[in-house]
Write a protein that binds this DNA or RNA. Structure first.
Lengths: 193, 193, 193, 193
DNA sequence: CATGAATGAGCGTTCATTCAT
DNA sequence: TATGAATGAACGCTCATTCAT
């Protein structure tokens, strides 16, 4: 019963933590780190300011935790594709589609991550993680390009990522800045997919 | 003599303004809007805080003015290339090289501009200008792609910009994230340059 | 018990508010609106600057609240006299004595109120309230003068108020600027009391 | 010629000084000491901020000088009445009329003077002068009341001043707060004029 | 003499963080 | 655990004063 109560409260604690993290991610993405007030996050999460500090030691740590959890959750769907028994060609096509959708949907958050990782001041640790995440993504793509016989898989991976990120930026400017169907077709052709 | 004195003081005023604007651009790019203190800009420009307010009515206006002046100054070199009597093919190649260099050099600022233009709160006017600037850049590229007989110049322009922006982001992550010579060669091939 | 805790905290909040209001009134009366710093009020009330802003949204609102509460608290003793079952003659005599004492004691505050209500800039709402308060005071006096058969009760009320306010100003200049006993005797004679 | 030039420039200097003083009086009366900016006075006087400091060492000294000059200029018309060869009775009547007109017209300035003279902080010297001015005004009135055989001329003087000041305050509240003709008639009767 | 650009101390206000309950 | 009242450092901005011209 003691163990049960403990595990129940532990579960409640974990849930509350997730709830705050999700709220933090939303607000940080909308306003950026400095323009976000801890009280904004508290309000969005439906808890009091004090509660935030029961779960996270500072605003900065909250920021880091929110983005760590985002990066982790992002790996999952891509990992699932990679783990499947499919030809590299097919995997790249699927990743391209997923990445454009996913990245476009969360580009505001990516932008903030880029900005944060690049900017002096906040979150040095986070920057390292983000860079590792980015390098890892490139390595994965490069090995797929190698599998399909691309003569310069490293460069192909970089260009592939560049196109996806760059298109996502354009979607941020305006949702119809370019024709998505034609663009994806063109990308496929360019990379021999 | 009176005219002389006037023009001298006018010149001094313009110079002082430029000096503040340049400092502002540096600091804003490094830290972002909210993390930048007016006193940072003043210190960087070598003037007092009060002086900033003699030239600009608020921090927000200073921000806008700094980015307006950046966008204007960016148009100049590109405009010069476009004005020359060269084949479209050659112009695109030159623009690509310039853009990658230029964009990579100022990607921190671009990132901030994207983030600002996308984020609720500061600088709605600036956002409009940035979007117009971006759309204009695309139109220019599209017309060049049309000249060289590209079957879908709009899409080509978007992808071209996407690659350049995306590569610039990677340079922000690490200066040697990819091999620039090989990447540019690949881009040239992809776009038939 | 829950209700008890609630009412205790509500009471604490109200008390804290009163404490700040009283401090604000003192300092504003001493120095005027613009010369008063929020930190002065905070220090006088024994709280931090931040606490002021927990209870009042701005210095201006604090000013308004302080004077509203003063005007309300002033009505009470006069209202009690008026409510008693006494001849109008006796009421006027009592009011005269009370008013001179009370007004003289708070003339610094009145002066500030006059100045504020008359001056462009701060507190238009407050000005309206003060004018209403003043007009109401005159109407009350006029009806008492009518009761004792004064042939021109409106004028009598104005003159009565004028004497009391004017004498209070003199007391501000110097506490012994005139002989209070003889002055009150003379006022009584002039107004047939 | 040297002497002539000097006196001409001296005259110009004196005129410029008056011009600033007049502007200062207006603005100070409108806004009070602290809410008035030196640049307001400069603008009203049609000179630059720097010029103010050529004539007055500080804002506070400017304030003092402005009110000194006001008090001096106020003495003149009253002094003229007093110097005339008229019965005391007639002098008092004339003074009453003049005072009510004059005081009512400048009550905003008086209010500021009272407030300033009464308030901690600015202008201790000015406060002394104002008190002296006020005491002197009372002495003059008292001697006139003595001449017309008033049994308690000191008290009469205080009450007379009180009525005039108090009525002026009411005029500040609203120009038709009382009937001026009937009020002056009543005052005359009360003081045996 | 006069100007107006420049300065910097000091204000009102915000908000991350702490703490009593 | 959770709350929200309280704190105070730090910001953007103003304005009296100074100074080069």
């Amino acid at each position: 019963m003691g163990a049960n109560a403990l595990s129940r409260s532990e579960k409640a604690r974990a849930e509350r933590r997730e709830q705050i993290l999700a709220a933090a991610l939303e607000v940080f993405a909308e306003k950026g780190f400095h323009a976000t007030r801890v009280s904004d996050v508290a309000a969005r999460a439906g808890v009091s300011q004090g509660t935030i500090y029961w779960y996270f030691p500072s605003k900065e740590e909250l920021f880091r935790a929110a983005f760590m959890s985002l990066m982790e959750s992002m790996m999952t769907p891509f990992g699932e594709i990679l783990a499947q028994d499919l030809p590299a060609q097919k995997k790249l096509e699927t990743l391209m589609e997923m990445a454009l959708t996913y990245t476009a949907e969360h580009m505001d958050i990516f932008l903030l991550l880029f900005h944060t990782a690049t900017t002096k001041g906040v979150a040095q640790l986070l920057a390292e993680d983000f860079k590792a995440f980015y390098a890892n993504w490139k390595a994965t793509l490069a090995s797929l390009f190698r599998e399909i016989g691309n003569p310069d898989p490293e460069t192909a991976a970089s260009l592939f990522m560049a196109v996806l990120d760059g298109l996502s930026l354009q979607l941020l400017i305006a949702p119809n800045f370019f024709d998505q169907t034609r663009a994806m077709e063109a990308v496929r052709r360019m990379f021999g997919l």
